[in-house]
Design a binder for these strands. Structure first.
Lengths: 237, 237
DNA sequence: CCCATTCCTTGACGACGGTCAAGTTTTAAA
DNA sequence: TTTAAAACTTGACCGTCGTCAAGGAATGGG
């Protein structure tokens, strides 16, 4: 097992030896089913890094050779199109990970990772992951499960873009959010209009307008910029 | 290893015991690196089925518990949106597979599979696959590679839909096709305008119009309905 | 070969939503 | 707290593209 320390000395973000990193590994679905002994082995190889709000974690074009797990904070993954438009791929919270592509083929990042707040990441090198997979094949199955779920969601997402108009995509997003939070009927938007637009493939202006329209139709109510009360779920669909 | 014969007796498509199924397994990237002995074991568990043009292989809502590998012919995978619009997810050719989601979690199909011509499929049951993965962990790595590639492509696809307008998507599709076929500058569209529209998230009318526009701009030339000569790759991008 | 069906193309029209701009509110930094 | 910057909203305008409709081309079965 290689104890690489690359990625720390040469960067401006702060790094730490694996200290309270334990939680980081044990909250990830990929690893959280493992025996304590195995967990400990993995934790020995984990790098930790913290990023300030707005700081870039990786950028498109850079070599990609590690798995990033969010420990604390949140991370925005986005792509830039040839025409310079931003598309947000996903928003990562503690326990989520990124960099999967790198694990199984030499590759470079096609997306950007950016901390949305003070964020701590756990980083595992590809070679270390490979060693674990050989040692504990059960991990492969877990990763395969995660991958197939991600794939399923990504294809569903693509289908939405291909077949639904913006208003429908926004409505679907709000309903999905309400389901996920299951916080009654009040939804808290987890990001700015700009980011939401980048996620849903539209513009901040259209988001504002459509939410206003939905409110005018009596389907929801804006409690504040970020807080919406869903009044009629079926009407939204 | 279980030798299920479900899916044959009860259906109207024709089935066959594993006969000339050998090629089927050995052409798949997932398996083609295995030893002959291992290949043979897998082949013993393979079901074979043939479908006529237009025949449905599986539909959304059905239980999903096998991996489908295309042996001969071609298959269209598509989704139907709530509003009834069709989105083509992919077009499968010999060596391609589908049904991956099912392999790692109890699940039902979210898409439809339809034979576009006389097609022969090889079918492997989930339980059999699982047994192989435990026996030969190397297969997991291969599948993980395939998955991460599919995931990468799917996210790129989503980004296109989110950020590019229809004309750009069509142009990008043509260029990609030209690259893949590497057949000089002549491209043969592998599907009808209707299917192409379902793939690119637009309508047959718009496809016709945009291709006509591109021709008017001198970027390509229609040799026939399905044959296009790319005149200016850079102009298309 | 003929006919019916499906596929493709083109036109007219309008809706959806992107862009630009201006004004307002919120946020964060000094 | 004050001030600058960023975020949000709303209006006006217009380009892109989806819809509906009609005519022509290609395809396949009898």
């Amino acid at each position: 097992m290689r104890h690489s320390d690359s990625g720390c000395s040469a960067h401006h973000h702060s790094c730490a030896a694996a200290g309270s990193v334990q939680a980081c590994v044990s909250i990830v679905p990929i690893f959280n089913h493992l025996e304590p002994v195995q967990l400990e082995q993995i934790m020995e190889t984990v790098q930790s890094a913290t990023y300030k709000k707005g700081e870039t974690i990786y950028r498109a074009g850079e070599k990609s050779d590690s798995l990033y797990i969010v420990h604390k904070g949140s991370v925005k993954i986005y792509r830039l199109s040839a025409s310079g438009k931003e598309h947000m791929v996903s928003l990562l919270h503690p326990g989520d990970f990124t960099g999967e592509y790198a694990l199984f083929s030499e590759s470079i990042h096609e997306s950007y990772g950016e901390a949305l707040e003070e964020t701590q990441m756990c980083i595992i090198q590809r070679d270390d992951i490979h060693a674990f997979l050989e040692k504990y094949p059960a991990i492969s199955l877990k990763i395969l499960q995660e991958f197939s779920q991600k794939l399923e969601r990504s294809e569903k997402q693509t289908a939405y873009f291909a077949t639904e108009k913006v208003e429908t995509r926004i409505a679907l997003y709000l309903v999905e959010l309400a389901d996920k939070l299951s916080s009654g009927k009040t939804v808290v938007l987890p990001m700015s209009r700009k980011d939401l637009a980048a996620y849903l493939g539209t513009t901040p202006e259209t988001i504002s307008r459509k939410i206003a329209d939905l409110e005018a139709q009596g389907l929801l109510k804006q409690l504040s910029k970020k807080k919406l009360e869903i009044l009629d779920v079926d009407g939204l669909l």
